[in-house]
Design a protein around this nucleic acid. Structure first.
Lengths: 351, 351
DNA sequence: TTGGCAATCTGTAACGTTTCAGTATATTGA
DNA sequence: TCAATATACTGAAACGTTACAGATTGCCAA
């Protein structure tokens, strides 16, 4: 029952990274047994299992990812697919942090897969699926009829979308309730006497634009206020363009006395446009804006804000993908984040 | 010379992803030959090479990453190591975009490796090196005597630092010239009559804090202005803390009439603090601030700004790591980005 | 003719893992 | 006692790639 004292490479040198072979040599078992012992397979004796796991921990064994991936196809990778051509996506870092928070104590790595405006958004997803580069995918800028979601559903690769689709297909998602945001914003503005409201919408084509517009419109008729069309720009436009269009709008006779803005950076532009037109925030017009970090109140204390937590979104999305990979029902991995109340300025400090 | 018509898996099914074996079967060559033909090895006939490469392109062959990685140890991965516990790192997305821009037409993937405040910053780096998870690493929040750089230098793994070290060791880096920024800022303030200046510094311990302080101090004596100490906070502190400290400072007799701020978010807090104390920006005090996106002028047009381009930083860092991996001299992969001029507000639009 | 050599091509082994198809030993049932 | 069966373990093969150590061929010099 003697073991050969030195296999070609399992000698005494402690410098190499330990493998199953190393463990097998040290415990006097076969690599198969070691492999199974480490993953709690049923046909391994209780003591053997404990012994192997102890030794593995002692010498800091870590499975070789390439070996596992080659053999099983499991990559232990989650890919976050991002559009890199949009100017002020400061929330991207929050999403990333949220994702990493969740996968921190799993074997998963996060890879960032970019695509630019010029590309078909399907390209990066197709690449990931064809090359089998990830076990799960997170996409954003979700559309009602999203080819990426359809494609991944067909191929059977787990994914989660930031934002919902509307194709009658079920898949995990996380979304912020933009319908609630927009309608609450309108109600709040109506509550402080604003009657002629304009909406700066999310980009055309994305699902949450529809939600936002619906919430806005429904609440308008509910409170009996009217809409001042502001359709020439979206939050995807440049700061300069939004500013210019806002100024133009505010110089007209029938200008709005309230704005609802779907993004903090765009709100800066709206306010600049308002002031370009010689009007004053809080007196001539009020603005309700979403924000992802609590900075707008420093900008103008008259602003009304609603917070959207992208770190939470990242965590929820990661949890959803991992859940799907782990065999849960896609339909059970959907979450909607409710907005808090519209917040006016209040500073706890001096004055 | 006949080839066996159907190897166990090289049959007619066109569904599986092509491998070298597939190519070998299609071209009638051995896998070794195919492998070499694809990487332009010298001992392959010119025509064979062309033929193999043509077929490979036709059927969309893509090398299996796990296979390559297992055999060669090459991961084709660059890791960006990030601290996830700092509040307003909006520039992180810019760095990521910069990196992805550069690695887009290489086989490299970008993985994001996080660590939190509670952890030793060396932990994630040690993990990457020990598990051989990346061919190259990018780190930020660089310190004069940085254990991470020293560690990676010892282990011989290519890396680049965002910011410089000061250990007498040579390695690739990219840095913004914060000495130039701070000294230019002081000169500009002096040029508009400000004589008592305060500096909101980068976090204690990071190399660029020293550069910033040096630039500030040197320029002070050059222009004959004096410093008002403002050492109780750094840009790592919370908005609320910076705001409070600024307000306290501005209520004192010997308050500064000029600020230099190393970060845009902190500048919002400084301005809020100034206004809390009942003073007015541009009249009682001027502020020069770095910013990474052009938003500060929308915030207060009296602000004086210097732009720092983090997307460029990301690109340069990626280029540096890839260069090192590719065999270039580490010493030749260092770059310093010069700040532009201090910019006062100018708006091209209406009024 | 022969040996040598360059030019091309090839099979085998190995990277570390898991799966398949066992083998050896002890335990049970009759 | 024997066979059947459960328990605990094992070697070999395979995933796709590259490196090593040959093979085969044709050509040239001697």
């Amino acid at each position: 029952m003697d073991r050969r004292a030195s296999e070609k490479d399992d000698d005494t040198s402690a410098k190499e990274r330990p493998t199953l072979k190393t463990l097998a040599f040290m415990t006097g078992l076969g690599v198969t047994t070691v492999s199974r012992a480490l993953k709690d397979a049923p046909e391994i004796g209780a003591e053997t299992r404990r012994r192997v796991q102890l030794v593995a921990k002692q010498i800091g064994y870590r499975p070789n990812r390439a070996g596992v991936r080659l053999r099983t196809g499991k990559t232990n990778v989650i890919s976050l697919v991002l559009n890199t051509e949009h100017e002020l996506m400061s929330f991207v870092s929050d999403i990333i942090y949220g994702v990493t928070e969740v996968i921190a104590d799993t074997p998963y790595h996060l890879i960032v897969t970019p695509y630019s405006r010029s590309q078909d958004p399907l390209d990066p997803v197709r690449y990931l699926v064809e090359t089998g580069s990830a076990d799960g995918v997170i996409i954003s800028r979700t559309q009602p009829n999203d080819p990426r979601a359809r494609y991944m559903l067909e191929r059977g690769i787990p994914f989660a979308t930031h934002g919902r689709t509307d194709m009658g297909l079920v898949h995990p998602y996380h979304d912020f309730d933009n319908y609630a945001f927009a309608s609450e914003a309108v109600r709040h503005l109506a509550g402080i006497g604003r009657r002629r409201l304009a909406l700066l919408t999310p980009p055309i084509g994305l699902t949450y634009r529809g939600h936002t517009v619906d919430g806005f419109t429904d609440a308008l008729s509910e409170v009996g206020a009217s809409e001042v069309p502001f359709n020439t720009v979206t939050i995807d436009h440049s700061i300069e363009q939004i500013r210019m269009r806002t100024a133009q709008l505010m110089r007209r006779e029938d200008r709005p006395d309230g704005f609802v803005s779907s993004a903090a950076a765009a709100t800066l532009a709206i306010v600049a446009g308002i002031e370009d037109a010689g009007l004053k925030l809080g007196r001539d017009v009020d603005v309700v804006s979403k924000q992802s970090s609590e900075l707008l109140h420093l900008f103008r204390r008259e602003l009304l804000v609603v917070n959207e937590n992208f770190r939470l979104a990242g965590s929820e999305l990661a949890r959803a993908v991992l859940g799907w990979i782990g065999g849960k029902e896609p339909g059970s991995l959907q979450s909607l984040s409710k907005p808090g109340e519209v917040q006016a300025y209040r500073h706890s400090g001096e004055k």
